[in-house]
Amino acid sequence: MRPLPGFNLHRPTSLGEALELMGALKSVKPIAGGTDLLPLMRDRAITVEDIVDIRGLHELKGITVEDGTLRIGALTTLTEVLESPLVAEKASVLREAVGHIGSVQTRNQGTLAGNICNASPAADSAPALMVIGAQARVSSARGVRRVPVEELFAGPKMNSLGKDELVTEILIPELPSGSGAAFEKLGRRRGITLAVVNAAAYLAMDGKKCVDARIALGAIAATPIRLPEVEAAYKGRELTPEAIEESSRACYSLVNPVDDVRASADYRREMACVLVKRAIVKAHARAGGGQ
Protein backbone atom coordinates (compact mmCIF):
# COMPACT_ATOMS: atom_id res chain seq x y z
CA MET A 1 0.00 0.00 0.00
CA ARG A 2 1.43 3.32 -1.11
CA PRO A 3 -0.53 6.31 0.18
CA LEU A 4 -1.31 9.32 -1.95
CA PRO A 5 0.90 12.30 -1.31
CA GLY A 6 -0.75 15.04 0.75
CA PHE A 7 -2.69 17.92 -0.82
CA ASN A 8 -5.38 20.44 0.04
CA LEU A 9 -8.86 19.53 -1.16
CA HIS A 10 -11.09 22.47 -2.10
CA ARG A 11 -14.80 22.04 -2.57
CA PRO A 12 -16.30 25.06 -4.33
CA THR A 13 -20.06 25.20 -4.82
CA SER A 14 -20.20 27.41 -7.91
CA LEU A 15 -18.30 27.65 -11.20
CA GLY A 16 -17.21 31.21 -10.39
CA GLU A 17 -15.72 30.10 -7.07
CA ALA A 18 -13.96 27.15 -8.73
CA LEU A 19 -12.44 29.32 -11.48
CA GLU A 20 -11.23 31.84 -8.93
CA LEU A 21 -9.51 29.04 -6.99
CA MET A 22 -7.96 27.61 -10.17
CA GLY A 23 -6.64 31.05 -11.03
CA ALA A 24 -5.29 31.84 -7.57
CA LEU A 25 -3.63 28.52 -6.68
CA LYS A 26 -0.16 27.80 -8.06
CA SER A 27 -0.05 24.02 -8.27
CA VAL A 28 -3.61 22.88 -8.90
CA LYS A 29 -5.66 20.22 -10.69
CA PRO A 30 -9.41 19.81 -10.90
CA ILE A 31 -10.95 16.44 -9.99
CA ALA A 32 -14.21 15.06 -11.39
CA GLY A 33 -14.27 11.25 -11.47
CA GLY A 34 -10.61 10.91 -10.49
CA THR A 35 -10.10 7.52 -12.18
CA ASP A 36 -7.15 8.82 -14.21
CA LEU A 37 -5.86 11.45 -11.78
CA LEU A 38 -5.53 9.31 -8.64
CA PRO A 39 -3.28 6.57 -10.14
CA LEU A 40 -1.03 9.29 -11.62
CA MET A 41 -0.81 10.97 -8.21
CA ARG A 42 -0.02 7.74 -6.41
CA ASP A 43 2.73 6.97 -8.92
CA ARG A 44 4.05 10.54 -8.44
CA ALA A 45 3.64 11.13 -12.17
CA ILE A 46 1.69 14.22 -11.12
CA THR A 47 2.35 16.21 -7.97
CA VAL A 48 0.01 18.99 -6.95
CA GLU A 49 -0.50 20.97 -3.79
CA ASP A 50 -4.16 21.72 -4.36
CA ILE A 51 -7.06 19.80 -5.82
CA VAL A 52 -10.33 21.47 -6.73
CA ASP A 53 -13.28 19.08 -6.45
CA ILE A 54 -15.77 20.19 -9.11
CA ARG A 55 -18.56 17.79 -8.09
CA GLY A 56 -20.42 20.60 -6.31
CA LEU A 57 -20.81 22.61 -9.52
CA HIS A 58 -24.39 21.87 -10.49
CA GLU A 59 -24.05 23.91 -13.68
CA LEU A 60 -21.69 21.19 -15.01
CA LYS A 61 -24.28 18.40 -14.78
CA GLY A 62 -26.63 16.95 -17.34
CA ILE A 63 -27.10 16.35 -21.05
CA THR A 64 -29.27 18.80 -23.00
CA VAL A 65 -29.98 19.89 -26.57
CA GLU A 66 -29.99 23.60 -27.38
CA ASP A 67 -30.56 24.90 -30.93
CA GLY A 68 -29.63 21.46 -32.25
CA THR A 69 -26.32 21.33 -30.31
CA LEU A 70 -25.90 18.42 -27.92
CA ARG A 71 -24.34 19.70 -24.69
CA ILE A 72 -22.74 17.24 -22.30
CA GLY A 73 -21.81 18.78 -18.94
CA ALA A 74 -18.31 18.09 -17.65
CA LEU A 75 -19.62 16.10 -14.67
CA THR A 76 -21.51 13.66 -16.90
CA THR A 77 -20.22 10.15 -16.21
CA LEU A 78 -19.41 7.74 -19.00
CA THR A 79 -22.33 5.57 -17.85
CA GLU A 80 -24.66 8.55 -18.14
CA VAL A 81 -23.42 9.09 -21.70
CA LEU A 82 -24.07 5.40 -22.48
CA GLU A 83 -27.57 5.49 -21.02
CA SER A 84 -28.63 8.83 -22.51
CA PRO A 85 -31.42 8.63 -25.12
CA LEU A 86 -30.25 12.04 -26.44
CA VAL A 87 -26.73 10.73 -27.07
CA ALA A 88 -28.13 7.57 -28.70
CA GLU A 89 -30.24 9.71 -31.02
CA LYS A 90 -27.83 12.55 -31.81
CA ALA A 91 -24.34 11.06 -31.46
CA SER A 92 -24.60 7.27 -31.58
CA VAL A 93 -20.89 7.00 -32.53
CA LEU A 94 -19.98 8.52 -29.16
CA ARG A 95 -22.14 5.97 -27.39
CA GLU A 96 -20.40 3.22 -29.37
CA ALA A 97 -16.94 4.50 -28.33
CA VAL A 98 -17.76 5.12 -24.67
CA GLY A 99 -18.95 1.52 -24.30
CA HIS A 100 -15.30 0.49 -24.86
CA ILE A 101 -13.82 2.66 -22.09
CA GLY A 102 -12.62 0.90 -18.93
CA SER A 103 -15.02 -1.27 -16.95
CA VAL A 104 -18.50 -0.73 -15.48
CA GLN A 105 -16.82 0.62 -12.32
CA THR A 106 -14.67 3.09 -14.27
CA ARG A 107 -17.58 4.25 -16.41
CA ASN A 108 -19.74 4.82 -13.33
CA GLN A 109 -17.09 7.11 -11.85
CA GLY A 110 -15.16 8.62 -14.76
CA THR A 111 -16.47 11.45 -16.92
CA LEU A 112 -16.46 12.10 -20.67
CA ALA A 113 -14.71 15.46 -20.22
CA GLY A 114 -12.12 13.72 -18.03
CA ASN A 115 -11.45 11.08 -20.70
CA ILE A 116 -10.49 13.95 -23.04
CA CYS A 117 -8.64 16.15 -20.51
CA ASN A 118 -6.50 13.17 -19.43
CA ALA A 119 -5.21 13.32 -23.02
CA SER A 120 -4.29 9.67 -23.40
CA PRO A 121 -3.42 9.04 -27.08
CA ALA A 122 -5.60 5.92 -26.74
CA ALA A 123 -8.69 7.68 -25.28
CA ASP A 124 -11.58 5.83 -26.91
CA SER A 125 -13.95 8.81 -26.91
CA ALA A 126 -11.48 11.03 -28.78
CA PRO A 127 -11.70 9.71 -32.36
CA ALA A 128 -15.49 9.58 -32.10
CA LEU A 129 -15.75 13.16 -30.83
CA MET A 130 -13.22 14.38 -33.41
CA VAL A 131 -15.07 13.02 -36.44
CA ILE A 132 -18.39 14.57 -35.40
CA GLY A 133 -16.81 17.98 -34.88
CA ALA A 134 -17.14 18.14 -31.08
CA GLN A 135 -15.80 21.14 -29.21
CA ALA A 136 -15.06 21.76 -25.56
CA ARG A 137 -16.28 24.84 -23.76
CA VAL A 138 -13.33 26.00 -21.69
CA SER A 139 -13.73 28.50 -18.84
CA SER A 140 -11.34 30.41 -16.64
CA ALA A 141 -11.54 33.61 -14.62
CA ARG A 142 -10.12 35.24 -17.77
CA GLY A 143 -13.04 34.23 -19.95
CA VAL A 144 -14.62 31.47 -22.02
CA ARG A 145 -13.39 29.88 -25.24
CA ARG A 146 -14.37 26.99 -27.47
CA VAL A 147 -11.73 24.48 -28.48
CA PRO A 148 -12.11 21.64 -31.00
CA VAL A 149 -11.58 18.37 -29.15
CA GLU A 150 -8.46 17.49 -31.18
CA GLU A 151 -6.81 20.73 -30.05
CA LEU A 152 -7.16 19.74 -26.39
CA PHE A 153 -4.54 17.06 -27.01
CA ALA A 154 -1.00 18.46 -26.77
CA GLY A 155 1.00 15.24 -26.26
CA PRO A 156 0.80 11.92 -24.43
CA LYS A 157 -1.13 12.63 -21.20
CA MET A 158 -0.71 16.37 -21.80
CA ASN A 159 -3.65 18.62 -22.57
CA SER A 160 -3.45 22.12 -23.98
CA LEU A 161 -5.39 23.75 -21.13
CA GLY A 162 -3.94 26.49 -18.98
CA LYS A 163 -3.66 25.48 -15.32
CA ASP A 164 -6.49 27.90 -14.47
CA GLU A 165 -8.83 26.52 -17.15
CA LEU A 166 -11.68 24.08 -16.76
CA VAL A 167 -13.63 22.21 -19.45
CA THR A 168 -17.25 22.87 -18.51
CA GLU A 169 -19.00 21.02 -21.31
CA ILE A 170 -18.58 19.09 -24.54
CA LEU A 171 -20.57 20.49 -27.47
CA ILE A 172 -21.62 18.30 -30.39
CA PRO A 173 -23.14 19.93 -33.48
CA GLU A 174 -26.24 18.57 -35.15
CA LEU A 175 -25.28 16.09 -37.86
CA PRO A 176 -26.94 16.46 -41.28
CA SER A 177 -29.33 13.83 -42.58
CA GLY A 178 -27.61 11.45 -44.97
CA SER A 179 -24.61 11.24 -42.67
CA GLY A 180 -23.32 8.38 -40.56
CA ALA A 181 -20.44 7.64 -38.21
CA ALA A 182 -18.83 4.58 -36.67
CA PHE A 183 -16.13 3.65 -34.13
CA GLU A 184 -13.84 0.63 -34.15
CA LYS A 185 -11.36 -0.54 -31.54
CA LEU A 186 -8.73 -3.22 -31.44
CA GLY A 187 -7.50 -4.21 -27.98
CA ARG A 188 -5.61 -7.20 -26.61
CA ARG A 189 -8.97 -8.41 -25.28
CA ARG A 190 -12.58 -7.14 -25.26
CA GLY A 191 -13.03 -5.84 -21.72
CA ILE A 192 -11.15 -3.19 -19.69
CA THR A 193 -8.29 -2.74 -22.11
CA LEU A 194 -6.31 0.05 -23.72
CA ALA A 195 -6.61 0.32 -27.49
CA VAL A 196 -3.84 -1.06 -29.67
CA VAL A 197 -5.46 1.12 -32.32
CA ASN A 198 -8.87 2.79 -32.41
CA ALA A 199 -10.58 4.59 -35.26
CA ALA A 200 -13.68 6.57 -36.10
CA ALA A 201 -15.14 7.64 -39.41
CA TYR A 202 -17.84 10.11 -40.42
CA LEU A 203 -19.35 10.30 -43.88
CA ALA A 204 -21.97 12.58 -45.38
CA MET A 205 -23.49 11.33 -48.61
CA ASP A 206 -25.40 12.96 -51.44
CA GLY A 207 -26.91 9.97 -53.17
CA LYS A 208 -23.94 7.80 -54.11
CA LYS A 209 -21.44 10.63 -53.82
CA CYS A 210 -19.49 11.32 -50.65
CA VAL A 211 -19.69 15.05 -49.86
CA ASP A 212 -17.85 15.07 -46.53
CA ALA A 213 -15.52 12.62 -44.77
CA ARG A 214 -13.67 12.76 -41.50
CA ILE A 215 -11.42 10.03 -40.18
CA ALA A 216 -9.58 9.87 -36.86
CA LEU A 217 -7.18 7.33 -35.38
CA GLY A 218 -6.06 6.84 -31.78
CA ALA A 219 -3.13 5.04 -30.09
CA ILE A 220 -1.13 5.58 -33.26
CA ALA A 221 0.71 8.84 -32.43
CA ALA A 222 1.41 11.16 -29.49
CA THR A 223 -2.18 12.38 -29.76
CA PRO A 224 -5.27 11.10 -31.58
CA ILE A 225 -4.96 12.28 -35.19
CA ARG A 226 -7.13 13.15 -38.18
CA LEU A 227 -6.20 11.81 -41.61
CA PRO A 228 -6.81 14.75 -43.98
CA GLU A 229 -5.17 12.98 -46.94
CA VAL A 230 -7.55 10.02 -46.70
CA GLU A 231 -10.53 12.32 -46.05
CA ALA A 232 -9.71 14.28 -49.21
CA ALA A 233 -9.51 11.06 -51.20
CA TYR A 234 -13.12 10.20 -50.30
CA LYS A 235 -14.70 13.59 -50.96
CA GLY A 236 -16.59 13.87 -54.21
CA ARG A 237 -16.22 10.17 -54.94
CA GLU A 238 -18.57 7.28 -55.19
CA LEU A 239 -17.63 4.91 -52.36
CA THR A 240 -17.31 1.61 -54.16
CA PRO A 241 -15.74 -1.27 -52.23
CA GLU A 242 -12.62 -0.80 -54.38
CA ALA A 243 -12.38 2.91 -53.52
CA ILE A 244 -12.74 2.15 -49.80
CA GLU A 245 -10.10 -0.58 -49.98
CA GLU A 246 -7.63 1.59 -51.86
CA SER A 247 -7.97 4.68 -49.70
CA SER A 248 -7.89 2.79 -46.38
CA ARG A 249 -4.64 1.13 -47.51
CA ALA A 250 -3.24 4.64 -47.88
CA CYS A 251 -3.30 4.90 -44.06
CA TYR A 252 -0.31 2.57 -43.95
CA SER A 253 2.19 5.15 -45.14
CA LEU A 254 0.48 8.08 -43.41
CA VAL A 255 0.89 6.91 -39.82
CA ASN A 256 4.05 6.52 -37.81
CA PRO A 257 3.17 4.55 -34.67
CA VAL A 258 5.50 3.33 -31.94
CA ASP A 259 6.50 -0.16 -30.83
CA ASP A 260 5.38 -0.87 -27.29
CA VAL A 261 4.23 -3.66 -25.00
CA ARG A 262 0.81 -3.75 -26.63
CA ALA A 263 1.86 -4.05 -30.28
CA SER A 264 4.63 -3.48 -32.79
CA ALA A 265 4.62 -0.39 -34.97
CA ASP A 266 4.13 -2.47 -38.08
CA TYR A 267 1.15 -4.33 -36.65
CA ARG A 268 -0.40 -1.00 -35.64
CA ARG A 269 0.06 0.29 -39.20
CA GLU A 270 -1.66 -2.77 -40.66
CA MET A 271 -4.45 -2.59 -38.12
CA ALA A 272 -4.97 1.14 -38.71
CA CYS A 273 -5.83 0.30 -42.34
CA VAL A 274 -8.18 -2.47 -41.27
CA LEU A 275 -9.99 -0.39 -38.62
CA VAL A 276 -10.35 2.63 -40.93
CA LYS A 277 -11.84 0.38 -43.59
CA ARG A 278 -14.27 -1.20 -41.12
CA ALA A 279 -15.30 2.18 -39.73
CA ILE A 280 -15.82 3.60 -43.25
CA VAL A 281 -17.91 0.62 -44.34
CA LYS A 282 -20.08 0.92 -41.24
CA ALA A 283 -20.40 4.71 -41.47
CA HIS A 284 -21.28 4.36 -45.17
CA ALA A 285 -24.09 1.94 -44.36
CA ARG A 286 -25.36 4.23 -41.58
CA ALA A 287 -25.29 7.21 -43.93
CA GLY A 288 -27.73 5.35 -46.16
CA GLY A 289 -25.14 3.33 -48.07
CA GLY A 290 -25.24 5.67 -51.06
CA GLN A 291 -28.88 4.81 -51.79
Binding site: L9, G34, P39, D53, Q105
Partner: peptide
Amino acid sequence: VNSCMILAAR
Protein backbone atom coordinates in the same frame (compact mmCIF):
# COMPACT_ATOMS: atom_id res chain seq x y z
CA VAL B 1 -17.33 1.79 -8.35
CA ASN B 2 -13.74 0.98 -7.34
CA SER B 3 -13.22 2.33 -3.82
CA CYS B 4 -9.45 2.62 -4.49
CA MET B 5 -10.23 5.34 -7.03
CA ILE B 6 -12.29 7.54 -4.70
CA LEU B 7 -11.09 10.09 -2.16
CA ALA B 8 -12.90 9.31 1.09
CA ALA B 9 -13.70 12.98 1.68
CA ARG B 10 -15.70 13.02 -1.54
